[in-house]
Design a protein around this nucleic acid. Structure first.
Lengths: 194, 194
DNA sequence: AAAAACATACCGACTGGTCGGTTTTAATCC
DNA sequence: GGATTAAAACCGACCAGTCGGTATGTTTTT
């Protein structure tokens, strides 16, 4: 039965997320990951042909969760979608401490590793397209003022990313969840037609 | 004479910036840095007692340039300062490809290394304070609408950081300099009293 | 000649990855 | 349904190479 195999694979990936987040891609050794997962090196290389492939698998899973979130808000109006996003903020910032360094790790690796870059850039562009069309929809619906949807998309994503980055650097420097909510409100307000 | 010593130290730091940017902190070995600088390992450890200390020195220099820029705009009005910042954008995005991974490296290391974190967090908070007081000044002067200066400061920094991050991931995905200029205009416009 | 600046050879710890062997699993046969 | 078997899953010792850092010696400066 392949259930045990499945479990092992999952344990490897979970351990990797934990260690990559805490120590970074380079510092977290394959041996460390194996120890954390409670398996042997042989098992590791049975499931993943290299450390990089494991990283790619992690990236894939992460992108999948985003895709799912987007899929879930498919048939809502533009403002509704934004409101739903703000509701996710508490959860995001709660879990940010653990997941964010991992996210940054993705970014950094992508800027240096061609393979990883190609695996990242396509979904990233897809998300930008989605956001752009969402804003365009809002403009066409008449609920948003007339802005350049592409530009607004870049700005919103930028604000979100920058906020997350700052919360990572200085978790106790501000009530980040509150800052994020107010920032979104401010952004959406400047977007909404009065 | 200590001029040669000074030169060697500078060469080490320049080589380190180049290699850290291209390969990252971990992958860029001390040997690599020495080879790039055209000096020996002995010379390296004569000038820096460890690899981390070199990194800290780099961070220091980088923060210094920011401090200088702030100092230069000391006695201008708030809107003027913002306009001056937009003028620096072309230069920033031109050199971003080389310097940004290094910047991200700072960030990532800071989130994991207590020593580096302490060296980063103090200046970071200082900059936040500066921005906040700048916006507050603008509000008091009557040129800005009444916003929460702290919140606005976080937002502006976030947008800048997010934009830089995006330009790093996808340099050819947009005309980032233009996006940055328009974003600033949009932000300042929503801040300026009509 | 003293000290600062630099070079070279080297060390122990650790890295990603391999490999031959062992156990577990599940389908097959009697 | 118990024995058989082959493949899948797993183990852990091991390899070649790399790393940051040191010890010791040589050159250059003052």
């Amino acid at each position: 039965m392949q259930q045990r195999s499945e479990e092992t694979r999952t344990r490897i990936m979970e351990s990797a997320i934990k260690l990559f987040s805490n120590s970074g891609y380079n510092k977290a050794s394959v041996d460390d990951i194996c120890a954390e997962a409670g398996i042997s090196k042989g098992a590791f290389y049975h499931h993943f042909k290299s450390k990089q492939e494991l990283f790619l698998a992690l990236l894939d899973g992460w992108l999948q969760t985003i895709d799912n979130a987007i899929e879930a808000s498919k048939d809502k109006t533009a403002p509704e979608t934004f409101m739903q996003m703000t509701e996710a903020f508490p959860y995001i910032f709660e879990t940010a401490g653990a997941g964010l360094p991992m996210f940054l790790e993705f970014w950094l690796q992508a800027s240096r590793d061609k393979k990883i870059w190609e695996a990242s850039i396509a979904p990233y562009r897809r998300y930008h397209k989605y956001f752009t069309s969402l804003i365009k929809k809002g403009v066409d619906e008449g609920s948003f003022v007339e802005v350049d949807p592409g530009l607004a998309s870049r700005m919103i994503v930028s604000t979100a990313m920058g906020l997350l980055l700052q919360s990572l650097l200085d978790p106790k420097g501000a009530k980040w969840e509150k800052v994020a909510r107010e920032s979104t409100t401010m952004l959406v307000n400047s977007l909404l037609k009065k």
